[in-house]
Design a protein around this nucleic acid. Sequence first.
DNA 1: GTCTATAAGGCGATAGAC
DNA 2: GTCTATCGCCTTATAGAC
Lengths: 191, 191
Amino acid sequence: MPSPKRRQNNRSVALLDAAAQLFAEQGYRATTIRDVTSAVGMGPGSSYYHFKTKADLLLAVYHEGVSRVVESVERRLDAAPDDPWKRLEAAVIGHVEAVLAPSAYARVIVRVLPDDVPEIADALRGAREQYEALWRRLVDDLGIDVDAGLFRLLLLGAANSTQVWFRPGLQSPEQIGAALVTFLREPLEKS
Amino acid sequence: MPSPKRRQNNRSVALLDAAAQLFAEQGYRATTIRDVTSAVGMGPGSSYYHFKTKADLLLAVYHEGVSRVVESVERRLDAAPDDPWKRLEAAVIGHVEAVLAPSAYARVIVRVLPDDVPEIADALRGAREQYEALWRRLVDDLGIDVDAGLFRLLLLGAANSTQVWFRPGLQSPEQIGAALVTFLREPLEKS
DNA sequence: GTCTATAAGGCGATAGAC
DNA sequence: GTCTATCGCCTTATAGAC
């Protein structure tokens, strides 16, 4: 007796997983529909039953990517104390965790820029907006006297660069997040 | 009496300028040879007189980009005092200046990753190596007890993200460089 | 739902005129 | 040195069989 409602859309998910992996590794333009379908053992035309265009496939991956980063950050925030700096640290850890996760969805958001796909650039920016609003709140809650937008993007710029140099076993997301926030916190609290 | 040796290769330079602009804006794969030639008012085939392949064109832009960032950083270092933290700050300012310069060459190094063009990935990494060695020295001279490679890539990751959020008039490269290095310096010197 | 075959167009690169 | 014309290939996307 197999579970009744599961796996209703299993092949769509397989396509999304493969697309996320390839988009994150090679970028959007360098990845072909044939790359994606052959990675899941399908014929070249079969992707179009599930996703109308290649851009639609990217957009679906993008939404899933944002959703996974938000989940990862909020999971950490739920377990964090009330102190706003501790909450910021928790969020950074959640972000780094998502970017370094085995699943490639979060990395697509970092690797593929809205300008890479002009036809859906606005939709991609909209998907990011939800996540950036979360960070705006976290930084605002610090009550520090710096340009909050500047601070936020500096923080995420640094955090995103972790995927360039991270080596498993040498640093954990917790260590990276704590180090980053400590770097930022101490000089700011003095001024 | 016009200068005799000048402008010997004026059209190659025009192609390089246009390619740098387009590679920085759209990425490598999304930019076509036709985009580049038509930006300088040439026919589609004429690029191949100056550059054998599209990848060769990128490599030339890349070398020029590295050369310009190195020049910008060394110009700042020549005017900096002996203190290693002041020298690091000067270097960050020089880097940010190059990335935010009107000329697009430096931005190509940030935007186009070696993995984007597998056929010349090693050559692109080699071009970056010269620049990264410069930073390795600067960080080593600090004599601090952190993973120097980690520290360097975190610094450059943050500095490179400036091109995402920088708005002229709000922050100068000097302010960004000073803020970044102050962020990093104070907590490290305590430990 | 997935297949194969193919349409329609864009790409990098070449050839030969000028 | 630059032009126009074109080759050969690969791409996204579609059509119709199964």
